[in-house]
Write a protein that binds this DNA or RNA. Structure first.
Length: 430
DNA sequence: AAAAAAT
C-alpha cells in the first residue's frame, strides 16, 4: 500500500501522484496532511521546493470528496486559497486540476483579466476558489462571489499575505468567512511577529516546522561575486547566463522594475533567449512570458519579486541576484526557484564592496554556507536592444514614487502606514 | 525603500 494511502488519502489520488512520478510524501506532507485531515488548523514552515502545495491540496481534495456535510454543499465555494501573486494563484489551481477529479470544481480569480469572465464563471460557483486578494474582494463586494460557506482557508506564502500591504485586504476577506472554519498557513519563512499575528486567525493550530531554522534547501550552492563597477554587473550576469547547459534555465532578480527593464534590454541581443517580467507588464504578457520560460522556449528570465515566491519551474539551474536583496526572506524565496524537490541548484549574488559586510551578516542569520568567487573572464555582451521611447533610464524620482505608492494602496491608508512604519523590522543587522 | 495586489 502506498504511503499516501496509509495517510488516509484515497487510492485514486495515490495513483495519480504515482503517474506524475510522485511515489512518497515529502516530510512536510507527512507532517501536515494528518492534522489537516483531522480538521485541525495548521501553521507549517518548510523550506522552498519541499512540496508545501500538495501538503494542503491533498487533504483538501480528500475532504471535498467526503459525502455532503452541510446545506451549502454544491452551491457555494467551500474552499478558498489565497496567494500573493496572480501567477502563483494560477499555478496552484492548475496543480489542483492535475490531481483532483472533475467533481472538485475550481476557479482561479485574479486581477489583470476581464472581470466579466469571472462573473460568468461564478454563475455556477466552483467548490474551490484560488485567488489574489484584490479581485476576490471585488467579486465578493459586487455580490458575484459568496464566501459565507467557506470552511477551509489556505494562505500560501502566509507570511507575505499577513505583511503590511496585504494585511488589510486579508482582514476584510476573513471578515466575510464563517468563524467556524479550518485555517492553514504555509510558507518557507515565518517571522515571530507574523506568527504572533496569525494567532488571532487560527484555533489551536498544529505547528509544523520540518527543519526548524532552515528555509533554504541544502542542495543549493550559494556563492557571490564582488564587482568593482556598476557596468561589470551586467557583464557578469551575461557571462553567468551563458554558462548553463542546454535545457537548463536561469532566473535573474532585481529589486526594482526599472532595473529589470534596463538589464533585460542590455542582455537582450537575442530577444528569444532573455525575457522579463514585472508588475508593469500586462497580465497577458506576464503569462505569455512565464509560459515561454516554463516550456524552455525562453532560457533566461529577468524579474522583480513578482516571480520570487512559489513558482515551480522545471530545470532552473541557477538564480542570480543582480544586487543584495533588501530583505533576507526575499533572498530565500528568489533562491528557492532553483534546487526544488531535492535537485541541485546554484545561486549567485552580485555585490559591490560596500555591501559585503551586510551580506555576510545575512548569510549567518540564514545559516547558509557561501563563498566568494573570483570574477570570470567576461563573455562580451551582445549589442544592446533599444529601449522603447520615453522609458526612464534612471529610477523614478522620490516624490513620484511616493505618490504612486499612495495611489495604488489607497491614500488615507498610505498615510497611516507611514506613521506606523518605524516598527517594521528587516530582521537582521540592527 | 520597493514590490505585490482592484479598476
Amino acid at each position: 500500500m502506498s504511503k499516501f494511502v496509509q495517510m488516509n488519502l484515497p487510492p485514486f489520488l495515490a495513483q495519480r501522484l504515482q503517474q506524475a512520478g510522485i511515489t512518497a510524501p515529502t516530510p512536510i506532507q507527512q507532517a501536515a496532511v494528518p492534522p489537516a485531515l483531522e480538521g485541525r488548523d495548521v501553521m507549517a514552515q518548510a523550506k522552498t521546493g519541499s512540496g508545501k502545495t500538495l501538503a494542503f491540496l491533498l487533504p483538501m481534495i480528500e475532504r471535498a470528496l467526503r459525502p455532503a456535510a452541510g446545506p451549502a454543499q454544491g452551491r457555494c465555494p467551500q474552499y478558498l486559497i489565497l496567494a500573493p501573486t496572480r501567477e502563483l494563484a494560477l499555478q496552484i489551481e492548475m496543480e489542483l486540476r492535475k490531481y483532483a477529479p472533475p467533481s472538485v470544481t475550481s476557479l482561479a480569480v485574479y486581477g489583470g483579466t476581464p472581470i466579466e469572465r469571472h462573473y460568468r464563471a461564478l454563475k455556477r460557483p466552483p467548490l474551490v476558489v484560488v485567488g489574489t486578494p484584490g479581485r476576490l474582494l471585488d467579486l465578493a463586494g459586487s455580490g458575484h462571489l459568496h464566501l459565507g460557506a467557506v470552511t477551509w482557508l489556505v494562505m500560501d506564502e502566509a507570511d507575505q499575505m499577513l505583511d503590511r500591504g496585504f494585511l488589510r485586504d486579508i482582514q476584510r476577506i476573513l471578515g466575510l468567512l464563517p468563524r467556524e472554519r479550518q485555517t492553514l498557513l504555509f510558507s518557507a519563512t515565518f517571522s515571530p511577529e507574523i506568527q504572533e499575528l496569525a494567532r488571532s486567525m487560527q484555533r489551536d493550530p498544529a505547528r509544523i516546522s520540518v527543519d526548524p531554522g532552515v528555509s533554504s534547501p541544502t542542495t543549493i550552492t550559494h556563492a557571490y561575486y564582488v564587482v568593482p563597477a556598476e557596468q561589470s554587473r551586467t557583464q557578469l550576469v551575461h557571462t553567468l547566463l551563458q554558462s548553463v547547459k542546454a535545457g537548463e534555465r536561469s532566473m535573474v532578480f532585481c529589486d526594482q522594475k526599472y532595473k529589470v527593464r534596463r538589464l533585460a534590454a542590455k542582455l537582450g541581443g537575442d530577444p528569444a533567449s532573455v525575457g522579463s517580467i514585472t508588475g508593469n507588464h500586462s497580465q497577458a504578457q506576464r503569462e505569455r512570458t512565464l509560459g515561454a520560460f516554463r516550456s524552455g522556449r525562453l532560457r533566461s528570465l529577468v524579474a522583480t519579486d513578482v516571480a520570487a515566491r512559489g513558482l515551480d519551474i522545471p530545470d532552473v539551474a541557477q538564480v542570480i541576484h543582480y544586487e543584495l536583496p533588501s530583505n533576507p526572506n526575499s533572498y530565500v524565496h528568489r533562491t528557492g526557484r532553483t534546487g526544488r524537490a531535492e535537485k541541485e541548484g546554484a545561486t549567485y549574488l552580485i555585490l559591490s564592496e560596500s555591501e559585503e559586510r551586510e551580506y555576510l551578516r545575512m548569510v549567518r542569520q540564514l545559516r547558509i554556507q557561501t563563498k566568494k568567487l573570483p570574477l570570470p573572464t567576461f563573455v562580451s555582451l551582445p549589442p544592446a536592444a533599444a529601449l522603447p521611447n520615453g522609458e526612464p533610464q534612471a529610477p523614478p524620482r522620490h516624490r513620484r514614487r511616493n505618490e504612486q505608492f499612495h495611489r495604488t494602496n489607497g491614500n488615507s491608508d498610505g498615510l497611516h502606514r507611514r506613521a506606523a512604519s518605524p516598527v517594521r523590522s528587516s530582521g537582521y543587522g540592527r
